[in-house]
Amino acid sequence: MSNVKYILGHFEDPDEMMHGIDKLQENNIGIYDVYTPMPIHGIEEKLGYKRSRLPIAAFCFGITGTLTAISMIYYMLVYDWPMNIGGKPSLAMPDFVPITFELTILFAAYGMMFTFFYANHLFPGRAPRVMDLRATNDRFVIAIDAKTNPYPDKIENLLKEAGAVEVMHNERKYVSYE
């Protein structure tokens, strides 16, 4: 049992999996992660995950885009090449709202995309990190760290009582597609 890293409980029904999470938490057993083939509402609160900071990152990227647009407009039209067109001021901001808006959206969208890829390890060319391949298809998997939870028989019994179809002892951290 010393080389086992994770205990995986496989469920066919999301309600049974949620019941399994409740049973494990009642017995003070730490859950490493839960893998599902579809989003399940309310699972983040049940597992104690904090709210995503992606909106904060989007705001920062948007402000960066706004400041970049205003800086470029100021540099190009006021500092570098001021032109007098019909007696209008060099920096007529209402004329440049569309440009500023577009750069704000562009920076926010690309910044959020790269932040999401970085946070979830979804870089192009990298193999996905999957605990069990069936979790991407038709199974709901609860992964429990075997090193921090020293009672594998108790965990296995709790998972089976909650409705687990299969309980596996995983020796590797992630399964590769090769």
Rank of each mutant, 00 (worst) to 15 (best):
N84S: 08
L77E: 07
V165L: 15
P37A: 00
I63W: 10
A164R: 09
T148G: 01
T104S: 13
M76P: 00
A143M: 05
I73E: 15
H10G: 01
M112R: 00
L67H: 02
R126G: 00
Y35C: 06
A162D: 10
A143R: 01
I105K: 11
I31Q: 05
Y49G: 00
N137C: 03
G48H: 10
N157H: 11
L159F: 07
Y6V: 00
P89I: 09
Y6C: 00
F107Q: 11
V78S: 13
P128M: 11
F11K: 03
I142W: 10
A143D: 00
N120Q: 08
I105Q: 10
R172M: 11
A119D: 10
P150E: 08
G42F: 07
L159Q: 07
K88E: 05
I31G: 11
I40Y: 00
E12H: 11
T100L: 12
P94K: 08
E156I: 05
F11V: 07
A119N: 09
Y35Q: 08
I155G: 06
I40C: 02
I73G: 00
Y177S: 04
K5G: 01
T68V: 02
N84H: 02
G87H: 12
L159H: 05
I43F: 06
M168C: 04
Y75C: 06
V34Y: 04
P152H: 07
E161T: 03
